[in-house]
Amino acid sequence: MPEFKSRYLEPKALRRIGGLNLLARSVVEGFISGLHKSPFKGFSVEFAEYRQYVPGDDLKHFDWKVFGRNDRKYIRQYQEETNLKAYIAVDSSGSMGFGSAGTTKFEYACYLAASLCYLLVRQKDSTGLAVFDERITRLVQPGSTRAALLNMLSALDSVRTGRPTSAASALHEIADRVRRRALIIVLSDLLEDQAGVLKAIRHLRHNRHEVIVFQVLDPAEIEFPFRSLADFRDLETGEKIQVHPAAFRQAYLAEVGKMIETYRKACSESRVDYQIARTDAPFDAFLAKYLSKRARLG
């Protein structure tokens, strides 16, 4: 793969996750070659790499030429273009602009989105990108080519946060727009009415989409480490509230815990992958861990 110039694609991160394949938990509509399960036969077209031959490998992919020249046994592996259609929905609302550890949630979400785009495109999966706040503000149609990847990365680079959020309406919009079964990856802090969000997710599931939810949260949102009296300003609405953190902390944490538990439980019931992405965790390690776990689950 060629090198891409995007601030969300870090070579180090890509190296770490590049060896992993995103496993769709359920059968998706379209052609899946390689590890994707698909009811349809696919076709391979693009060489990817060699690997050491082990007994039992299909000799159809044995590279006789190399064997003839160097007397080494290699199996040729191909990058297979599939018919898996994936949409990565990134929340660009004002709340995503919060970051207590140097990295904002939006930046973190973009890192994840870019990495996933890269991964999916590299798998030849048709991948699209939707950026939303109250509604979808940018939509990159799915594609499995390098050009599609460039488009998506370019779109991520150009987005700025600040507007109010309505993930629910955005997800409903996605559900309405994507007719065929697809993999919908949601990257959002989901700090809004939980019932509305869950209703939108159920809408996606009702349309038979595979849904993965990454709730991107800042550690400050989870642990509320503030100590001194503070005027908290809402990044979306500009609303201020003066709070003595010592007095609020426990009640606040209880509310956050309740929210997370609500999402976790509802997603589990809807067979939706739900993950909390803390922005203080290296996103590559987080993604690698998630993909590894997903690979184990088959």
Binding site: F98, E221, E239, E255
Partner: peptide, 17 residues
């Protein structure tokens, strides 16, 4: 003196408040 903190959402803070 209260320091100003930009926060993602004061939704939960308002609920608690």
């Amino acid at each position: 003196r209260a320091v100003q903190v930009d926060f993602s959402s004061v939704r939960f803070l308002k609920l608690v408040d």
